[in-house]
Amino acid sequence: MKKIRIGIPYALYFYEYYPLWKEFLTRLGAEVILSKPTNKNILDLGVRSSLSEVCLPVKIFYGHVLSLADQVDYILIPRMVCVEKGAFFCPKIIGLPDMVKSSISTLNSLLVPLVDVRKPYGTWKNSLFQVGQLITDNSLAISRAFSISWENFQKNYVANLLDPKLLNPSLLAKDTKNVAQGLDKMTINININIAVVGHDYLVNDSYINLNLIDKLKKMNVNILTPSMVPPRIVKKQLKKLYKPIFWSLSRKAVGAALYYFENKVEGVIHLTSFECGEDSMVGELIHHQSKQYPEVAYTEFVFDEHTGEAGINTRLEAFLDMVRRKKQYEINFAPSR
């Protein structure tokens, strides 16, 4: 029998939930086709088929859906509403299946399971079950596939968390020693920690963020991301705010930013996309919090479909120069910590 082919657009929340769906569907014997990483073609497709007022990540999601359209039987677009108490997804993500359906008329069938853990029919298990029943009638197999893939999903999530050594200032201490030994002060390569916070789909999509992560790596920077911060710490950090944040996807970014501020990393870069509603508010909150930590440099990069690489390069270099110079100054003149 021919396998059912299910397409997963590699954008938005799938940066977080793709491993779960992939494993579940493969275990049930479906063929999972992941769209290619974002490229010029996908962006163009997305921009052409969506309204101009829609935010960049959603436009790119459109592009991924269109690029999958003629390769698969079904396209998976879960309606993500709520995965934890007191927090929702952004309105555009909740309405995403309907938006895609009404903008693109030529699509194959969409799979739209509801994920809303407040409701008994919307739990992860039920929503995966709905999709599983399309592939096989054997509910025992579905059940087993669910529990295994759920377990692995949790395990992998923990595996990606922060290695505590990364935040250790020992690297810096070594450099200070070198300085004391009389090495050339100006050429010492000071290892600095830069936290890149923002939605997963901005931090991890190297096409949208114009290879920012690679660029930072080349500049000998130790990169920290929100996914490295354990959920427990995020929760604790968010208590600092006057009012809890009610967007699931932003919670991680804000909690991580506050955590990195508190641990005095050298710099924090907040990635936002043009027209993103969450980021406009959350950016202001992070900015406000950053003022309490004057020793941490903070900047915000906004991306849209017209962002030029040269502009970002200049800003990034200027930001790093500033951070480095500050560090150098501390090593040369300030008493070491």
């Binding site: 969506s50 007022e53 309105p91 309907d98 009404s102 509603g277």
Partner: peptide
């Protein structure tokens, strides 16, 4: 940039 209304506008 209103989020819910952009969904509505598309639809």
């Amino acid at each position: 940039t209103c989020m819910p209304e952009i969904v509505a506008e598309t639809i």
